[in-house]
Write a protein that binds this DNA or RNA. Structure first.
Lengths: 242, 242
DNA sequence: TGACATTTAAAAGTCTGACATTTAAAACTC
DNA sequence: GAGTTTTAAATGTCAGACTTTTAAATGTCA
């Protein structure tokens, strides 16, 4: 681990990069303890606060975790799917909220991803996944459900559909897309007819998944995408008019 | 922006979270200047190093950028797609290199995503995207190409295919999957027959995209996935034997 | 008056040294 | 030998000073 003394970049950035490279290259392996802050500051010939800033940068990316006390220190973190999820969600939420992407673009990506999962899910889903989907459909049909609860149930339904594919990479990619859209979806007021249409499509998709018919599920998702975009565009039109 | 004095969490974590919340909620908008470090340390009643550690955490996530000098400071960053790309790539690379996901899982996710893009790309791709694909296919047929160069060209081909869909969210999701697999792909030695098979499939896919035939492109990708997994499994088997 | 050079001040970046807090391990007691 | 106390190592936090960068204000001269 070395830094370039001639570089114009901030020292804490350079040090963070050096450690990150060491982790990615395998020089530092999972759960290995990094040298203490004092040793690092000695090694890189910088002060402890500078080393600390570098470590905080890495901690923010879940590359390391720190532990206080004797035999504490910074340890290389095994990146968990949960960490990856939450990073993905933060990034996606910001992209959407800062208008770097439109709702339509996010929606298209989301359903394209779901359609990619559908055939795998039709083939592999466990009875559990299917039961979850059915339970959410039932909940969505209950009268007196708030719009937020309806949305949450919708998310749970899609979650089960995607998880059924048994591919955690796909699950985590979708988590970002779905969660990021949540705040916008929550703004939608669902009429009884809207709910009926959506729940009907959900049933159609669940039936296809149960029958192991991937292409039927894909076509159900296709229709659901149109439905969602229609609903959203109405909301945006109303909001723009005010 | 407030922090809880009774919380047991580190102050810099709390402060980072408070600022992050303010950004996500829209309380702080893009390009807005945060208070100076001195003002923040005053506001939160902590020392400047603590504030700085909090800011470094946010900077590591590209939520803010800092500028030195008069009228400098920390500014809310508009998250760019490039930032999102590189975060996605780092995360995916780590997930793969730390064995949190298998090569097969990553490969499956990658091709599922690509198949999701294919119909959109068949419909929307510009002449430019198609030309890039053709150029890369030509390059892949050149004799004397190193394995690394072949791989790089392969990535460029798929990149053009996905970008043709015109959905930046899909592009950035795939960037992670493709780039993360690169180091492993580079370990593969491609025989002349392998290259011929791959290039042939690429041609088939490009033809389908040119003709606007999404489902033909999907089936080409399906075959390419089998081919890739076969090649990779041979490499892993050889490596395991040593 | 206008273009260029100079000064100035604000802000982040860095350093030193100290103290507080946490925690595991060593030492000690019964 | 089990439980308690002490100890030391490590991170977390603080205070204050100095350095470097940079934009804006000021000044100078044609």
């Amino acid at each position: 681990m070395k830094i370039d003394p001639n570089s114009s970049a901030d020292l804490s950035v350079q040090i963070a990069q050096a450690i990150k490279d060491a982790i990615i290259s395998g020089e530092l392996i999972v759960d290995e303890r990094l040298p203490s802050e004092a040793e690092l500051s000695d090694h890189f010939q910088v002060s402890r606060p500078t080393v600390r800033e570098a470590l905080k940068r890495l901690a923010a990316q879940s590359l390391i975790r720190t532990q206080r006390g004797a035999s504490g220190g910074a340890f290389v973190n095994r990146l968990s799917f949960e960490d990856a999820y939450s990073q993905q969600i933060t990034t996606s939420t910001l992209l959407l909220s800062m208008n770097a992407v439109s709702f339509d673009t996010a929606c298209e990506a989301r359903y394209a991803l779901e359609r990619a999962c559908a055939p795998l899910s039709a083939e592999r889903r466990s009875a559990d996944h299917l039961a979850t989907m059915r339970a959410e459909i039932f909940r969505q049909g209950q009268p007196g459900l708030t719009d937020e609860a309806f949305c949450a149930s919708d998310v749970a339904f899609h979650r089960a559909l995607v998880d059924g594919a048994g591919n955690p990479v796909l699950s985590y990619q979708l988590a970002g897309a779905v969660e990021a859209m949540q705040p916008l979806m929550n703004m939608i007021t669902f009429t009884a007819r809207d709910r009926e249409a959506i729940t009907g499509l959900h049933s159609r998709i669940a039936d296809a998944i149960e029958a192991g018919d991937g292409s039927a599920a894909v076509s159900g998702l296709q229709d659901l995408e149109s439905e969602t975009r229609k609903l959203a565009s109405d909301v945006f039109a109303a909001r723009a008019q005010r």
